[in-house]
Amino acid sequence: MTSPAWQKSSYSGSSNACVEVRAADGVVELRESDEGDVIVRTTSLKFATFLQGAKAGEFDHLTATP
């Protein structure tokens, strides 16, 4: 069985400096495109909860520029 293809956000445009994600069998994997051998794995439920927080702005302070 082959793994699903990695997907990046359409907001990344043609940039290769992005976070990529793929999911299969209830597991979500994330990696940075320039560090492809380092993979973070989590459950679909935990990832969905994280995305809800991100959409609600809970992590905006991490991306704000001074």
Score class of each variant (00 low, 15 high):
W6E: 02
E35F: 13
P66L: 11
E58H: 15
S12W: 07
A48G: 09
T49Y: 03
R41K: 15
F59T: 10
A5R: 11
T63V: 12
S3V: 09
F59R: 04
D60Y: 05
V21M: 14
T43P: 02
K46R: 15
E58Q: 14
S9V: 05
A64L: 11
H61V: 09
R31F: 10
G57A: 09
G36Y: 06
D60W: 05
V40F: 14
F47V: 03
T43C: 06
G26W: 00
K46H: 12
K8W: 06
H61P: 00
G53F: 04
F50W: 08
A5G: 05
G36E: 11
T49I: 08
P4E: 04
T49K: 13
S12T: 06
D37A: 12
T2C: 01
T43E: 03
G13V: 03
E32T: 05
S10T: 15
V27W: 00
A23Y: 00
V27C: 11
F47E: 04
T42C: 15
N16H: 11
F50Y: 06
S10R: 09
S14F: 02
F47L: 09
T42N: 05
M1T: 14
S14A: 14
V19N: 07
S14M: 06
T42Y: 07
S10D: 07
T63E: 04
E35S: 12
E29G: 00
T2V: 14
K55L: 12
G53A: 08
G53C: 09
T43H: 06
E20W: 07
W6A: 02
G26E: 03
P66W: 07
L51W: 13
V21W: 00
P4V: 10
S3Y: 06
T65F: 12
L62V: 02
G57T: 12
K8M: 01
G13R: 07
F59K: 12
T2I: 07
A23E: 08
S10M: 09
T2A: 09
S12A: 11
T2L: 12
A48N: 10
D37W: 08
A56S: 14
F59C: 04
C18F: 02
T42G: 12
L51A: 13
S15T: 04
F59H: 14
L30V: 09
F47N: 01
S44Y: 01
G36M: 08
E29M: 05
T43F: 13
E32F: 01
E58G: 01
G57C: 09
T2N: 06
G36S: 14
P4N: 08
S12Q: 07
E35V: 13
T43G: 13
K8L: 02
E20A: 04
F59S: 12
G26P: 00
